[in-house]
Nucleic acid binder design. Structure first.
Length: 195
DNA sequence: AACGGCAGCAACCGCCTTTCG
DNA sequence: ACGAAAGGCGGTTGCTGCCGT
């Protein structure tokens, strides 16, 4: 049988990607009422989302001070340093990178850095014994960094609300020639290895 | 020109911690 | 002092677009 909590008004909870309309509703509501108390906020705003989903969307994407786009070499270095120090404490790391979210840093680490580490291991005669720390994660040096344009696709699909008044946060992507960001990853990795 | 595989990102899930009644 | 609810966090998944064959 289908057990139904039956909240009388059983809200069909929406999941998946947020639509522009939902974003608008959420932003507008928060602009007028402030953030927090997410469950009731979701209900009051008329969003068929869970409080968690609203919170996540706001914190990671809609908040005016969220900074999206290319991770700078400085930021990368900081991420690596802090990760070496704290491991996967993403939110803790994020606190030291203004405008960056834990989710973004986590994704960045996994998609970019961790991969390089793996390859580097295979390259430097990895074996299983990292004489360094092997409690947390493993860091090593890098190798292939050619294909990684820092800018890549930056923002795709529907970019954050362009009507956002505080749009200072949203820097236009435009990789274009900005890829003088050919970050000397070798240097960064080297520094990392010195730890 | 079409297909398959890969990479990157947004969002979800479940667990743990904190706060409130 | 205890229990319930909400918030916060990290891991994981699914989708989309890009690149190579």
């Amino acid at each position: 049988m289908d057990k139904k909590p039956c909240k009388s008004q059983d809200v069909e909870v929406r999941k998946g990607p947020w639509t522009m309309e939902e974003d608008l509703i959420l932003m507008n509501y928060i602009a007028n009422h402030g953030e927090g108390v997410w469950n009731s906020l979701a209900r009051s705003a008329g969003l068929k989302r869970t409080g968690k989903s609203c919170r996540l969307r706001w914190l990671n994407y809609l908040r005016p001070d969220v900074r999206r786009g290319n991770i700078t070499p400085e930021e990368q270095l900081l991420i690596m340093e802090l990760h070496a120090k704290w491991g996967n404490r993403w939110s803790k790391i994020a606190k030291h990178l203004p405008g960056r979210t834990d989710n973004e840093i986590k994704n960045y680490w996994r998609t970019r850095i961790q991969k390089h580490i793996k390859q580097a291991e295979n390259f430097t005669g990895q074996t299983a014994d990292h004489q360094h720390h092997h409690h947390n994660n493993d860091q090593a040096s890098t190798s292939q960094l050619s294909s990684c344009g820092p800018a890549d696709h930056a923002v795709e699909s529907y970019s954050p609300p362009s009507f956002n008044p505080n749009m200072e946060a949203f820097q236009g992507p435009f990789p274009t020639e900005s890829n003088d960001n050919f970050w000397s990853m070798e240097d960064l990795w080297s520094m990392q290895l010195l730890n």
